[in-house]
């Protein structure tokens, strides 16, 4: 089975500091988001089960060739990289066009996996947009994947329950973190990742003319958090307050 995993290069969120409610991104290393790692792990598990190959497709900035080593170490066989040096942040619609075009160029693809949303702005648009551009069925919020003959049985994690659906291949799935526990690559896998095949293109080479972004981020501020400064006199009162705040039992 030929599986594509779309992964987004984002700042390492553990190293982002907030100053005056704004994220400080200077010198923050770039990595892939946690949900993207779940999508990759799902792809590698399927490959290990039925054979085939896993291709990572990613659009990002300079340094993407280094970032993708992480995915190649964790089981991807090859990578298709789109370098977008002209834009600070790639708008979802443009990102989807780039990824869809790259996937078309890969030829026969049976399954395309996305994280449900990216780790940075979580627009949750790109998977659906790519499915539309490729004219493929799409299932979202996937927490379980079972492979049957030429089809998938997929469990969706919804707010108030679970939905099980059957989907014909090829298809696009967007997955949630409950799907699996991504593997930690070994030293040898990391050292050999750089030797795996990579195709690198610029966004202009891929699309010809890159569309002009139509959505502009005006501000990106962290919410203000104030200590509640709740005072308690007794242990019983403390338990009551914690329950009321939803930290103990059910509020």
């Amino acid at each position: 089975m030929n599986i594509v995993v779309a992964m987004k290069q984002i700042p390492d969120l553990q190293q982002v500091r907030i100053k005056n409610r704004k994220p400080i991104l200077d010198d923050v290393p770039l990595t892939f988001g946690n949900i993207d790692r779940n999508a990759l792990e799902a792809a590698v598990l399927i490959k290990e089960q039925v054979g085939g190959s896993v291709t990572v497709v990613a659009a990002g900035k300079e340094g993407l060739e280094d970032t993708v080593k992480e995915a190649l170490a964790a089981g991807a066989d090859q990578a298709y990289l789109i370098i977008c040096n002209e834009q600070e942040d790639i708008e979802s619609s443009i990102s989807a066009k780039l990824l869809a075009e790259a996937i078309k160029q890969l030829g026969s693809v049976d399954l395309v996996l996305f994280g449900e949303g990216s780790g940075d702005n979580y627009s949750s648009q790109v998977g659906s947009r790519v499915a539309e551009l490729l004219d493929l069925p799409q299932v979202g919020y996937v927490e379980r994947i079972e492979l049957t003959a030429g089809e998938l049985v997929v469990t969706r994690s919804l707010e108030d329950g679970k939905e099980v659906v059957q989907v014909a291949l090829p298809a696009v799935l967007t997955v949630v973190t409950d799907l699996n526990q991504p593997r930690i690559p070994s030293v040898t896998q990391i050292l050999k990742a750089g030797r795996k095949p990579k195709k690198v293109m610029s966004d202009q080479e891929l699309l010809g003319a890159v569309p002009t972004p139509k959505v502009k981020t005006l501000s990106n501020l962290a919410p203000e958090i104030k200590r509640k400064q709740i005072q308690v006199g007794t242990a019983v009162e403390l338990v009551e307050k914690l329950q009321a705040e939803g930290f103990l039992g059910r509020a």
């Binding site: 290393p29 280094d66 080593k69 992480e70 170490a73 930690i184 690559p185 990391i190 050292l191 750089g194």
Partner: peptide, 18 residues
């Protein structure tokens, strides 16, 4: 190097998770 940074994170992840 990028490989050393990945090895560093691999060891950190394993140590913290397991």
């Amino acid at each position: 190097s990028s490989e050393q940074l990945l090895v560093q994170r691999m060891a950190k992840d394993y140590a913290e998770q397991y």
